[in-house]
Structures are given as C-alpha cells and as structure tokens.
Design a binder for these strands. Sequence first.
RNA 1: GCCGGUGUGAUGGAAUUGGUAGACAUACCGGACUUAAAAUCCGGAGAGGGUAAACCUCGUGCCGGUUCGAGUCCGGCCACCGGUACCA
Length: 822
Amino acid sequence: MERDYKPEVIEPAIQAAWDDQQIYKTTEDPSRPKFYCLCMFPYPSGKLHMGHVRNYTIGDVISRYMTMQGYNVLQPMGWDAFGMPAENAAIKHELPPAQWTYDNIDHMRSQLKRLGFGYDWDRELATCQPDYYRWEQWLFTRMIEKGLAYRKKARVNWDPVDQTVLANEQVIEGRGWRSGALVEQREIDQWFIRITDYADELLDDLEHVDWPEQVKTMQRNWIGRSQGLEFSFERPGDAPRLEVYTTRPDTIMGITYVAVAAQHPIALEAAESNPEIAAFIESCSQMSVAEADLATAEKRGMDTGQTVIHPFTGKPLPIWIANFVLMDYGSGAVMAVPAHDQRDYEFAKAYGLPIQPVIKPVGDDPSYDLSQAAWCEKTGITVNSGEFDGLNFEQAFQAVAQAIESQGIGRVTTNYRLRDWGVGRQRYWGCPIPVIHTDEGLKPVADDDLPVVLPEDVVVDGSGSPLGQRMDFVETIDPSTGRPARRETDTFDTFMESSWYYARFASAYSNDAMLDTHANYWLPVDLYIGGIEHAILHLLYARFFHKVLRDLDLVTSDEPFKKLLTQGMVLKDGSKMSKSKGNTVDPQELIDRYGADTVRLFTMFAAPPELSLEWSDDGVAGAHRFLKRIHALVQAHVQTGQHSLQGKVDVDGLDESSRDLYRKLHETIAKVSDDLGRRYHFNTAIAAVMELTNQAAKFEATSAEAQRVYSEVIEAIVLLLSPITPHLCESLWEALGHSESLVKVSWPTVNEAALVRNALTLVVQVNGKLRSRIEVAADASQDEILAVARADEQVAKFLEGMIEKKAIVVPQKLVNLVVTPA
RNA sequence: GCCGGUGUGAUGGAAUUGGUAGACAUACCGGACUUAAAAUCCGGAGAGGGUAAACCUCGUGCCGGUUCGAGUCCGGCCACCGGUACCA
C-alpha cells in the first residue's frame, strides 16, 4: 500500500483487475433477485459533460449497493447515436456524420471506463448500427400492418433559402439560424403513429408506476383527457355546417363570435375573394410552429364576413379567423365566450367584440371583474342563459349537452390534448423509414430485405437531404412487380431509437429477433435514471412503444420503467453550463487532477439527485481532502497491526466511549443503507460517514474490546463508501487483509443491540419556544418527563406567574408547555 | 401563454411523518506544527443586543392563514429553472 493517496496509480490498477475478472459481466441467475438499473444513454456529442458524470455516478452507486445487497444487477450502456448535431458537425468540419459519431463514441467510452462505472460492456449498442435499427424498421412495418402507422399532412418550419426543414430550436425569432431567412410554414406528407389509440392506457397505467408525482402530473396534463361537447353550427344558405369542440358547454349562451384557424377551409375560401384575408393568412404562415411562440404571439385576426347561427337563440354570430386557434386540435374552430375564456377575452378586447357574461360566482369574488379579465372558474352559476339559468357547472353541462343532442347536431365526447406522433424527419443522419414508393402506391419493405441501410459515405452541406441525392439509395425495384420504385428518403425521429433500447439491452445477444425470451427475465427496468427534461416526450414515447411491443407478444409487462429517478441539472454560477456562456467544466481535467473517486464523491456530495447541482472547484478539493483523510486513517490502522483483531463485539461489556462509537457506527450503517437503498440521497449518506470518521479519529482505544470496535468501524467506513468511491475502497479493503473484491462482499448489517440508549435528551418548549433541554431515562413515563421539565431551572423562569393550559409530550423528542398569564 | 418544479447562513446543502432551523462540507478567521510556506491537525462562526458568559430578540423569497407548534400544510404574489410535440 502506497504511503500517500495516489489515485492515478490505484485507479487504473483496480480497473485492470475488474477487467481481468470480467466482474461486471451479467447473466441470468434464478437463485438471486434481479435488478435492472438503467441510466438514460448519452448522445455522443464529443466528450462527457458534468450532467453525464452525475447521472452515471448515481446509477453506478445504486448498482453497486444493490449488488452488495445480493441482487443480480444489470447495468448496461450504449449510445443514442442518430441526431442533428452530427449533421451540424459534418457541415462545419466536412466530416461524414458516421465518422464523427464513431470517433466520439470511442472517446466517451474510454471516459466512462476511466470513471470506473460497472457496466456490462458486452451489451453495448449504438443506435446508428444497422444491427440495431433493423429491428426498429421491422417494428415499423408491423405498425403499418396493424394500422398504427399512417400518412397525413403536417406543418413544418421551412427555410426558403437553405431549402430545408428546420427544427423548432433552429428557428430564432422567426428566422432560420443559418440563413437568417424568414421561416415559412409548409404542409408536407408525413408518417404518423397512433399513440392516441393508447391514450387511455397511457393515462390510467400511470397509477401503477413508482414515479415522482410531478412527472406523472406532467404526463397526465400532456395527455389531457377531457369531457366536452362536439357540435356544429348551422350557417345561412347552404353553406356547410361548422364543427366545434368545447369543454365549457355551460357557457354556450355567452358565445359572441366563433374563431377558426388560418388553415381552416372557411378561412381559405374567404381568402379567395378577399386579398386582405389572403394577406393575413399569408402572414400567419410566417411563424414558427412551436407552441410557446403561438401562445405568446400577439392575438390577431380578421372578420370573414361570414356568420353561423346560434343553436338556441337563432341569432347570427360572426366568424373570425384567429391566429391562436390550432388546426391540429379538435376541428380547428372554436366557439368564443370572451367573458369566460382568457384568450377569447383578449381577442374580443382587441377587436371590439361584445363580452356577454353567463356565469356568476356564488357570493363575493374579488377576481370577478370583467373589465379586467375573463372569469374562468367552474364554480359559478349560470345567468343570462334563458332556460339554462341557475345551474352549476355539472348541471349546465348536462342540460346543454342534452339540448344539443336532441337537436341532433352534436354529442358529448372525450377529447385528448395528446396528438399522434409525427415520426418522419427530412434529415440524413437517422434511421431510414423502410418504405418504397411504387406505381402501386406506398409499400413497406419486406422483412427479408431489412435492414434498409443508411449510406455512411456522404457529404453534408446543409441544404436539402443528402439521401435524396444518392441515386444508389433512392432507386430500387418493387420486388412484387419488378418495376422501378423509389425509396423513402425521410428518416425517423430519434425518439424512435430511444423508445426501445432499454429492452434491447436485456436481449443483447439476439441475432434473429428484435427481442427474445431473455428480455422478460430483466424487464421491466427496476430503476431508470435520467434528466427531468425527459419527463414528457421520451418517457411517454417509450411507454407507448412498450405497450406496442406487448401487443406483439415481445414483452410480457405493461410498463417499461417500474421506478423513475429524475436528476436536476449541473449549474455553474447559477446557470446551465454551456459553451456559449463559457462556463463549462470538463470532467476530464478533474479526473486527471484528482482521480475518478474524487469526481464521483463530489458530484454525489454536492446535492441530492433531484436538485440542480451548483458546481464548485473548492468543493472538489474538499472531497479530495476527505479521501486523503480516509486513506491516512486506514493506513495508520493497518500499521498498528490491530486490524487483524477478529471476533464479535460484546455490547454490554464496552466502556462508555467505545459504546458511543459503536452506537454511532450502527446508526451510520442504518442511515447510509436507507439513504442509498430507499431515499437515493447520497449527500446525506456521505455526511453520515464523515461524522463517523470524525468521531473515529478522536477515539482512543484503551482495551482489546475497544480495539475490536475500532476495527469494525474502519472496515465499515470502507464498505459504506465503496459504492461511491470504489477504487480507493477496493485498495483499502485489500490493505485490510481481504483478498476478494468488494463487489462480492455483503453490505454491513445493523446490530440492533448497539442502538439501545439508556438516557434521552428532550427539548422543552414553553409556548412553542425552545427554553431548555432535559435528560430523562429512556423508559420514563409522561408524568415523570413533565415533572422533570417543570422543575428545570430555565423552564421554571418562564412558568412563573403563569397558568399551564396544556402540556404536549412528543415521545423521544420534546415537551411543549402552553401557558397564559395568571 | 400553458404545465411542472425550485427558493434556507458568505457558498453547496441538512432538517425523511407538522416537533431542537443551519447536520456535513466549502470559503473565511484564529491557533498548533514549520526558519517560512504548502500540506496536515485543533478551534470559532446565522443576524442583532449583551464587556463577556449566562441569556434575550429576530430569522427559511414576499404577504396572509391553520396549529400548542410551520422551512414543512393552505390561499395569494415575486424571482429563477425545466418542458411545450422537429434539441436530445
């Protein structure tokens, strides 16, 4: 054992030993319970950043802890390798995206190994490999067969200069990020998957997963199941009826206009004869398609001059075109009730449309002020509504729905905010959509012809899709007719690959099926760890895929991720680390300087996982100091030769300070086990070990029995820290005379006898304010405790001239005496 | 805009079920060791009052409420962060 702590010597040696023994290779083992611990795989952007280090350290700590608890742990790693950054890098460096990606993967893999994560590398995958994506293509053709995949028109951001489709993040203040051109909206044919077929199940099954409540709430709101009324307005003459959907039928008598989306047929028809309307619709199309932009845009609109007829009053209502109405939601038209909907209100104010209140709050409500804002609560009573007057929300909903249904013009329906998933991307670096365009229409590629391999030797220049220019890719033959056909040049959304990789890890060696029976040994994932930013999209898509896989009999479970742990971001100087802010910290420099264990220790100590983590260079140095201290403490102990003292500690035979240390030891074991196994709060686990270390460092052993206590403490410190700083702990464990790797050692258990206390310290409050502390026997009765509390000198001062009204005793904790002046 | 979260000393954080606010660290200050420095070790420390100790008052983003008791629960605000369907 080295005299000084030298991580640069210890860590590579320990890692080499792990490799030699293939200690992290996993196979099925029916004799032990399984535990599948998965971290969200990284996009290979170049090098690891602090967010990765944090995420993967959390996973590794839990995996190591569970292994020591006797579980058969699977912890795999791979690469989310398709995506836009590879194309951007290709344009910048004139490198093929594939080469850039594979180089990055090689570098990042070596960084992960240097950090000592216990991955089963034999299961590694990269989503850009044909061996992986062929099964995605296979699954998609099954979806086409089952009618789950279909084509429809969808709007995209179009850059007229670069002649390319832009992602939302590439549209900056309405302009293309590279060309600076005003972005337009275009309608193109796209592939969609019917995730809405599973909307109810996706919503209801949230009750059966052990996920943070906030994430479940976000998913519920995203799916947005609502009961509403779908009905149509009659229009003058023989104009076709206008279909609308509303969740507020109770406000139907307050409609003062109706609004349609700019792409609605009524709007397009009006534009034909009115150049002003045409110009307005044109200006609406110069806008990003992002929801945040649409929702915050100034509300604008135009009167079409057309009307609809109110189903109950028979009065005409104007039809407006409004930029806040979405063509994709409902029927692309809404009934506007400005008194009780904020968007309708703002629009009405802007264009001088009438505001007709039809709901009144019960009693006084200061928020009811229609000169300032709409009143949108569902807690009021209908007024000004003729036959529907005096009803609450429920009653008014039913009455209006019935009246509409009896007219035969509408019905109550369930609606979802969730939209079908558009999976087509007009980009190169993605999985080719396995479809050919033939003279007989679209045809899925047959299983035997899969995979459709993406050509990797291309030049990307930022305009148009390189795939469309590759005639050797595009031109093909329709196998059923022998006639020429063209391959689809769109690729999949990269969320497709990340929606099933967790299952492929569990079935990594299956060459002739997407998943084989091994998948069901490991699935579902017991713990899934990743950034909170994936709370909706990725996690919802993966849940959807899992249900599709289940319905194809590929998996037996209903949900992919039993438990979810979401981590916060890594910040520096209060904001997200980014190249543009110049506040990035490169983990590699820290590993080179302090070693992997220090980096792991700091990232776990600085904050609990779900909070954002504020980076601190001083904090890293402090973590390193602690490890040096541990190293010195264990080394000193080994040099005394006392570490070989064996035998069980006899609790009753201990002197007071030994007994205190022994109790602290077992309190610490209990605390750390709870923090690592249940709470996932590593910062407090580390703090507890630090407290134990501080107490141990002050301890002087005056007997053989005390030496035994101290030996047990030193060994426990090494064991308790080993999931977090495995290299140092392995080397110390060996120095303490053990030959087996810590990975194979059992986690220490709590000796309940050590926790027993004879006396307790209780806090005494008078009127809720802390006034004193008292010592009482652990088995003292309430009356005895109160007597001691009242007799306490400090407490008595505050009882003088007072009458005691009440006395509260919280066992093991405190006494509160409630008094008033006599 | 909408949905979800966060806010505690100089700093990161602790307080797990409504019961001692500030554990454990970092930075800082003082001391020991040293010719000196670094490293290491020991000690101090929320703010205000008090010569000091004892002790007292205030204090968990802001305003209000519930409770014997609120960082924790409820109502209303403010600031910041994440998501917002083509960033991953």
